[in-house]
């Protein structure tokens, strides 16, 4: 019986990363990346792009609770791990028309959010209250500065 036990644990430990990658990340990531229009894009999002494509809803939901109920306000100049919807919109809700970058409303099919969400028919409620057009100045996020820890790991 002991042998079985060890074997089972060994299989679980070995197979886990493989399973995780296959089921959790690769398949939807590939599909999603085809949908996004790359004409207006910065180098990097507030977090790794692949991660954002899959998990943005969780990050946004988490920060909205913290901000509205606990009063935690992330400073606007800090982009790393800042999931304020105002920041999202400020960069993403723009497109190029005749070499000019113009703001896009959610009513437009080419709005950054609606491109994916229409395709996968996931109805989002954000813009019944939030403004879907950028109101601030145009600013593109270059890849956020890496922390000392990240430099070491990479």
């Amino acid at each position: 019986m002991k042998k079985y036990k060890l074997l089972l644990i060994a299989i679980a430990v070995l197979a886990n990363p493989l399973l995780g990658m296959a089921a959790d990340k690769k398949a939807p990531e590939k599909k999603l990346s085809k949908l996004v229009d790359p004409t207006v894009q910065g180098e990097n999002c507030v977090r790794d792009t692949k991660d954002m494509r899959l998990n943005h809803m969780n990050y946004i939901l988490h920060q909205r609770k913290e901000t509205t109920q606990l009063g935690k306000r992330w400073p606007k100049n800090v982009l790393k791990n800042n999931y304020s919807i105002e920041l999202c919109i400020n960069c993403h809700a723009r497109k190029k028309v005749d070499n000019k970058i113009v703001p896009v409303s959610i009513k437009d099919n080419t709005h950054f959010c609606s491109q994916c969400h229409r395709k996968v028919s996931v109805n989002i409620d954000c813009f019944s209250c939030h403004n879907s057009k950028p109101t601030g100045k145009i600013k593109f996020i270059k890849s956020p500065p890496k922390t000392a820890q990240e430099k070491q790991t990479k």
């Binding site: 089972l8 644990i9 299989i11 679980a12 430990v13 886990n16 990363p17 399973l19 995780g20 959790d24 998990n55 969780n58 990050y59 988490h62 913290e66 606990l70 009063g71 935690k72 306000r73 992330w74 400073p75 800090v78 790393k80 791990n81 800042n82 922390t147």
Partner: peptide
């Protein structure tokens, strides 16, 4: 035990990821 190990990598601790620049609550 195996089932628990299988779940673990899927769990994400956003707090841990955010620890760097988190502002204070009122």
């Amino acid at each position: 035990a195996v089932a628990t190990l299988g779940l673990a990598p899927g769990v994400k601790f956003i707090d841990v990821a955010n620890a760097g620049n988190e502002p204070k609550a009122v």
